[in-house]
Each structure stands twice: as structure tokens, then as C-alpha cells.
Computed example of a mutant assay.
Amino acid sequence: MSPNALIPSHRKPRRPSASSRALRAGVTGGFLTLAVTGATVPANAAEKPVAETQEMPTITTALATSAAKSADTAEQVAFNYERQALQDSAFSKAAKAAEKHKAEAVKKAKAEAKKKAEEARKAKEAAQARASRSSERSTLSAPSSSTATGSTATLVSFLKAQLGKAYVLGSSGPSSYDCSGLTQAAFSQIGIDLPRVSQDQSTQGTQVGLDNLQVGDILYWGSAGSAYHVGVYVGDGNFIGAQNSSTGIVERPLNYDMPTGAVRVL
């Protein structure tokens, strides 16, 4: 034994270092500070802080996952809003374009209808003008009351063939005629039987005015029923008749010897 073994030491007791105090404070508080090195830590004191401090990463991960999901949801909502806005804008533009196209189509249709109506009007007017000109040409070229057609042509042809023959009172042809004998013979050519004398011939058929004569009308001088002379209107303001013994059968204008009246038997 050393002679100094029983001599009391005059050293002051070693005070715990700051690291040891911090370690003990950390164990007492329920967590372990791993930054402290070189300190002796009881096993039962180190286990508890490790178990307790492992919960923090779990909570942090859940919060981070929740925050990430919230961010994704917000981003998706924002995307949906943006997409809907784009769709609404596209629909609005399409609707406006369709409305504009419709308005243009209606305007074009009205213009076409107006154009067709104008063309139809012009075509109608042109057709009416052509019809009017055609009617005028037909009026000029068609037989008037002064031109013989059909049976009247046969009648006029017979009368003209007798021009120059003698007038003989009471004669009925064929080489000579008196006035009523000539008209009776002429109308017999077309199947019409007339009375023999002028008085009776002046009451046949229908009385007509001298301003409305037609080819084949029988002209008479004197009054109807007591006429003393007859002839036949052959058109162009002329008549043919057996006038008298000095002239024989002749063609004369109406104003040569204006008749009193006329009858129509055709």
C-alpha cells in the first residue's frame, strides 16, 4: 500500500460537464440529443427518447402527402376551370360565327329572291310586250271584216266572176242578173237560200250597223221590208251589185251610193 493511500485527497469533486448536464436534461425531457458525443448514456434512458422521436417523421410525411394531394386537387380544379373557360369561349365564338353565317345566308337568300322576282317581272313584261307585238301583227295580217275567208271567199269569188255582166230586170243568170237575182245566185253557191226579191232579202238574218260590216253582209237601199235595191259587201269598203242596165254588174265603194242598212245571214 502506498503511504499516501490513507491521506485524504484535497482535490475538489469533479463537476459534471456541460455535455453531461445537457444529456441528462435531454433524457429527463423525453428525447435524446444525438449531437453530444463521448457521454455515457444509460441504456434504459436512451431507449425512450428514440421511441418517442420516431413519431415526428410519420406526422411530417402525412402532412406532406396531404399537402401534396391538396396541391394536386387545387391544380386540377384550376385546370378544369381553365378548360371550361376555353370551351365556353370556343362555344361563344362558334355561336357568334354561326349567327353571322346565318345572317349572311338570310341576306343572300333575300337578295337571290329579289333578283329572281325582278327577273320574273322583266320576263313577264317581255312576254307581254311580245304578245302585244304579236297581237298587233296578227291584227294587221289577219283577215278583217273587209277580207273574205272560208265560205265568204267562195261567195266573193262568185260575185267577182260576174262583174261586167248585164243587168236585166227579173233575170237570175247566168249571163245576166237583176240586183236580187245576183245576191240569190251568189248565196246559193254556199248553201244559203234567199228569197227572190229585195224587199224580202232586206229582212233576212240579223240587222247590222253600217259601221260594223263584215264580208258577205247584204246591203239594202230603202227601208227594211220595202227595200228597192240590194248588193253584197265584199270588204275594203266596197260592194258588188247589179246596179242598172247602163252599168251592169259592178264593184263600187260604199260612198258611191251609200246603202240604208245591212243584214247578216252568215
Rank of each mutant, 00 (worst) to 15 (best):
A5S: 10
A5C: 12
L6C: 09
S9E: 02
H10N: 07
R11E: 12
S17K: 00
S19G: 06
S20G: 05
G29H: 04
G30S: 05
L32A: 05
L34K: 04
G38M: 06
N44E: 13
N44T: 10
E47I: 14
A51L: 14
A51D: 07
E52S: 06
Q54A: 15
Q54E: 13
M56Y: 10
T58G: 08
T61H: 06
A64N: 11
A64Y: 03
T65Y: 07
S66W: 05
S66I: 12
A67E: 06
K69E: 14
K69F: 14
S70Y: 03
S70H: 03
A71L: 12
A74F: 07
Q76T: 10
A78C: 01
F79V: 05
N80R: 06
A85Q: 10
A94F: 07
A95T: 12
K96G: 08
E99I: 08
K102T: 12
K102C: 12
A103S: 08
E104M: 13
K108W: 08
A117V: 06
A117N: 07
E119L: 12
E119P: 00
K122C: 01
E125K: 08
A131K: 06
S132M: 12
R133K: 12
E136V: 14
R137Y: 13
S138P: 00
L140S: 14
A148Y: 01
T149D: 08
S151N: 06
A153F: 07
L159Y: 05
L159C: 06
A161M: 09
Y167S: 00
G170V: 03
S172W: 00
P174N: 12
S175K: 09
L182H: 01
A186S: 11
S188N: 13
Q189V: 10
R196T: 01
Q201P: 03
D211H: 02
L213F: 05
L213K: 00
Q214G: 03
A227H: 04
V230T: 10
G231N: 06
Y233V: 03
D236Y: 11
F239M: 15
A242D: 00
Q243T: 04
S245G: 09
V250T: 10
E251D: 01
L254P: 00
N255R: 03
T260H: 05
T260Q: 01
G261F: 09
G261S: 04
V263R: 14
R264L: 09
L266G: 06
